[in-house]
Amino acid sequence: MDSQNQPISAPTLFSSFAAITKARLAISVVFSTIAGYVLGVDSWGSDNLVVLLLLAIGGYCMVGASNVFNQVLEKDLDALMDRTKSRPLPAGLISKNNALILGFILTILGLVILYAVNPKTAMFGAISIFMYVCLYTPLKTVTPLSVFVGAFPGAIPYMLGWVAATGNFGIEAGTLFIIQFFWQFPHFWAIGWFLYDDYKKAGFFMLPTGQRDKKTALQTILYTVWMMLASLIPALGMTGKLYLTKISAALVVLLGCWMLFYAVKLYKEMDAKAARKLMIVSVSYISLLQIIFILDKFLR
């Protein structure tokens, strides 16, 4: 029997769906959204659990759609890189047309679900997917400024949760946005450093100078410092309902110093191993930071 006529098994469909929507990345983004929502809620009831479920599903749909469209646009480039050549599209597991259909279905479904939460949440979700697909993705092969552009949709999920909880975009949501905005730079530059050779095959420009040099490493340190300072803004009592106690602020400083240590280590060692370690620490940093903010709210 022709292998093309054989039905695709459920596990293969699931693994292909997880791969083309980048499930691990999508789940981490959804976690940021939920963290922002928990920070914005004043009181808890059964309705909050419904909204959380809608945010989780709608958020995954929007991030998944962004990743699907990204892979459709970069199908041929993904085939050139070792890290991505086994993805469903370059590997031929999913056709380009079917991927586009999936992307549009996820987009519409995500927007409808987020609109059910409130219109502003859907609006920011739409802005995020537009910037990621139409601006960040094509700019990756043109200029290192793609990381700057990509930092905008990347920073939206954390504040999106607050907007979902309150229906408003104010100083609190803006502060959450700024924190995650500055975090994007050391995180993605670390990735761009240790995957430099692979990215080069596809012509991606991810590092600020285009090279793994001291200037790139120094900028990684500087943006880590900016990230640390932004994370401490709520401790100053100037961000409305978003507030951080002195004890939690001290924990945030320690957490930031932990990440700064590995940024400095990259500057000293200038190798892929140090960059990979910084990337891993950065992922832990943003999750732990959000947990500290949540615990601070409920324990103070």
Results as ranks from 00 to 15, higher is better:
residue 25 L to P: 02
residue 229 L to R: 08
residue 66 S to C: 09
residue 18 A to F: 13
residue 231 S to N: 04
residue 65 A to D: 08
residue 265 K to H: 15
residue 2 D to C: 11
residue 31 F to R: 05
residue 5 N to Q: 15
residue 78 D to M: 04
residue 23 A to Y: 14
residue 100 L to V: 13
residue 68 V to P: 04
residue 264 V to L: 14
residue 75 K to M: 12
residue 147 V to H: 00
residue 297 K to E: 02
residue 112 V to C: 10
residue 24 R to L: 11
residue 107 T to G: 10
residue 9 S to R: 13
residue 237 G to T: 10
residue 109 L to W: 06
residue 88 P to Q: 03
residue 157 P to N: 05
residue 89 L to H: 06
residue 143 T to F: 04
residue 38 V to T: 14
residue 126 A to T: 10
residue 105 I to E: 01
residue 281 V to D: 03
residue 207 L to P: 02
residue 227 M to Q: 06
residue 19 A to Y: 09
residue 292 I to R: 06
residue 219 Q to K: 13
residue 169 F to H: 11
residue 138 P to M: 03
residue 119 P to E: 14
residue 126 A to Q: 11
residue 294 I to K: 04
residue 217 A to H: 05
residue 229 L to P: 08
residue 247 I to L: 14
residue 12 T to Q: 15
residue 243 Y to W: 11
residue 293 F to A: 04
residue 3 S to K: 14
residue 4 Q to M: 12
residue 43 S to K: 14
residue 29 V to H: 07
residue 16 S to P: 06
residue 162 W to P: 13
residue 265 K to C: 14
residue 258 W to D: 07
residue 207 L to D: 02
residue 216 T to K: 11
residue 166 T to E: 01
residue 206 M to Q: 07
residue 270 M to P: 00
residue 194 F to L: 08
residue 121 T to E: 12
residue 243 Y to A: 14
residue 271 D to L: 02
residue 3 S to A: 12
residue 68 V to S: 00
residue 136 Y to K: 04
residue 225 V to W: 03
residue 29 V to T: 04
residue 121 T to G: 11
residue 1 M to W: 13
residue 217 A to D: 07
residue 21 T to V: 05
residue 94 I to A: 01
residue 92 G to S: 07
residue 231 S to Q: 00
residue 231 S to W: 02
residue 296 D to S: 08
residue 113 I to A: 01
residue 207 L to R: 03
residue 248 S to F: 14
residue 213 D to K: 05
residue 94 I to Y: 03
residue 13 L to Q: 13
residue 72 V to W: 01
residue 141 T to Q: 15
